[in-house]
Computed example of a mutant assay.
Amino acid sequence: MKIKEIIVVEGKDDTTAIKRAVDADTIETNGSSIGEEVIEQVKLAQKTRGVILFTDPDFPGEKIRKTISEKVPGCKHAFLPKEEARPKRGKGIGVEHASVEAIRNALQAVKEEMDEFISDITLDDLLEAGLIGGNEAKARREKLGLLLKIGYTNGKQLHKRLQMFQISREEYIQAINKILQEENK
């Protein structure tokens, strides 16, 4: 599987894992304090070939994703579920621990940022579905992120991410219904 876009990852081990799974070039951020040099590389990559942000499903990974997204508009995003980013033994979480299949699946489900789309999913919809506030909100957001392949977000960011990736009301309702069915089993 050849990837045209340049994939932005956090480090060398992530690059190694990506290259095991697909034929692709990478840019490594080398941590969450992203320097201007890396931002300029990502901007050039975006202009010439396009960019896929593929960071770890943890707080630092989300910080990197957000920082680059703000400075380089129009990036695509690949998300890896947390359970597919854990090592077989030991601690940690990251792209480097993912299987070839998990990496390929994430790259096949890439989401594209769009600024123009205005979703008809409201904050009230999120509240009504128990995605904001309440005891089950975090677990439901995790499940929703998996089903829609948009990654996990906190309550504040969920509405923005649904818009950014142009999630339709129909897709959203189907995912919420599936979550509720699973909870009622």
Rank of each mutant, 00 (worst) to 15 (best):
L80C: 02
E101F: 11
E96M: 09
P87T: 08
V72S: 02
K71G: 05
D58P: 10
I68T: 08
S69I: 14
K82E: 15
D58L: 00
V72E: 12
R86F: 07
R65E: 13
D58H: 00
A98S: 10
D58Y: 02
K91W: 03
K71I: 12
E62Y: 03
K66V: 06
E62N: 04
I103E: 04
T67N: 10
I103T: 01
S69F: 14
E62K: 01
L80A: 00
V72H: 03
F79G: 00
H97T: 08
I64C: 00
I93C: 02
G61R: 00
G74P: 04
E101C: 10
E101W: 09
H97I: 05
E96K: 12
A98D: 09
E84F: 12
S99K: 02
I68C: 04
F59G: 04
G74L: 12
E70F: 05
I68W: 06
E70P: 02
K76C: 11
V95H: 02
G92R: 07
L80W: 05
A78S: 03
P73I: 08
T67F: 06
I68Q: 03
R104Y: 01
G94Y: 07
G92I: 13
P73K: 06
S99M: 05
G90I: 11
L80R: 01
G74R: 08
P87Y: 07
P60Y: 13
D58V: 00
I93G: 00
S69V: 14
P81I: 10
K63T: 05
A102T: 15
K76Q: 11
T67P: 02
K66N: 09
V95R: 03
E84G: 05
G94C: 08
E84N: 14
K91A: 07
P73L: 14
K91C: 01
V100W: 11
K76E: 10
K71D: 06
I68Y: 04
H77V: 08
I103F: 04
E70L: 14
F59A: 15
S99W: 03
T67V: 14
E83S: 12
P87S: 05
K71E: 13
A85G: 10
R86S: 14
G61V: 03
I68P: 01
L80Y: 03
E101S: 13
K63Q: 11
I93S: 00
R104C: 11
P87E: 08
P87G: 06
R86M: 14
G90Q: 14
K88F: 09
G92N: 08
H97S: 07
E62D: 13
A85D: 07
R89W: 12
H97C: 05
G90A: 03
K76P: 01
K66G: 02
S99C: 04
H77A: 07
S69E: 15
I93M: 01
H97W: 03
V100C: 07
T67A: 08
H97A: 09
E101R: 13
P73T: 10
F59K: 13
G74W: 04
P60W: 13
K71P: 05
I103R: 00
E70G: 13
R65W: 08
R65C: 13
P87K: 03
G61A: 03
D58T: 03
E96P: 05
K63F: 09
I93L: 01
R104V: 12
E96N: 07
G74E: 09
F59T: 13
G74T: 11
D58M: 01
C75Q: 06
E70Q: 15
R104D: 08
E83H: 14
K66Y: 03
V95K: 01
I64R: 00
E101P: 08
R89N: 12
E70C: 06
